[in-house]
Amino acid sequence: MADVLVDARRVTRDFRSAGDIFRRPQTIRALDRVDLTVARGETVAVVGESGSGKSTLGRILLRLLDPTDGTVNFDGVDVFALKREPLRQLRRRMQIVFQDPYGSLNPRMRVGDAVGEPLEIHRLAAGADLERRVRDLFAEVGLDPSYVGRFPHELSGGQRQRVGIARALAVAPDFVVLDEPVSALDVSVQAQVLNLLADLRDRRSLTYLFIAHDLAVVKHLANRVVVLYLGQVMEQGPVAPLYDAPLHPYTSALLDAVPTPDPDATREQTTLRGDIASYAGVGCVFAPRCMHQKKDDRCFSERPALRPFAEQRMAACHYADDPAKE
């Protein structure tokens, strides 16, 4: 593989619920030994339902959250070994765009100041130069530069999301985590923002980690997809083969959940039943909801390893068939 920019190994994160006199503290494993590499210039999508650990993974990569175990290397540097000042320097190179365009902007800060803040913090610009660069950034993300003096509540959801993108790009980062950047937007606006993200990536040769909860949104943007379920990688691989012939039954289910624009089209559905639940600790995490024809006792007793398939794909299912071999 090409030049690796982000390399996460065996990243594990537990969340403990606070116990009290009546309840024991509970440990929930949000991420379970996840390996992830992102090559420079690549867009990797991390897909899974709510609770799959995808946002936790994104936050750990940026050191907004500490892992319980595992390592993260950014451009060869161990992110969690850094002291304050080198960490501040590194933060310039990795940024994040959040899902919620309401919560991601300080309600008491003018949006122009929000975009300029990273530049100020890293002392990259000040005064008239700062103002000019903020206006340039507004123009670059398709916002009228005259909006710099507005407050977040004066903008629409799509406009706010553009402000969030401009803020992430202000310090010219190499790597951007997009944490469900379009999930909260109207469908028509979603397409605009996705196109903007694609344009920016090409123009600025950015590397993206795109977090999403459905496969439809990432299809045109991602090079590679990682499917997470209950904190474990179910399947990963390049977009085209993964969409054409999913190896893992969970990936199939996610693909079936993508709505078809044709109302008359009948399609075979392997609808997922039930909600994402907790993992008993033995067997396959997905087994309780799995619709695979070959599902048997082994699925409940032995945890399937993530094993390699053709075309640089990997899947964690005992009964995944390699389409290339057939």
Partner: peptide, 22 residues
């Protein structure tokens, strides 16, 4: 817990700045 706070942390804002502006 709000995203804008996290964004400012991600931008590398020092504590004094966090308190004053956010």
């Amino acid at each position: 817990e709000r995203a804008f706070y996290q964004a400012a942390v991600a931008a590398g804002a020092p504590t004094a700045r966090m308190v004053r502006l956010h």
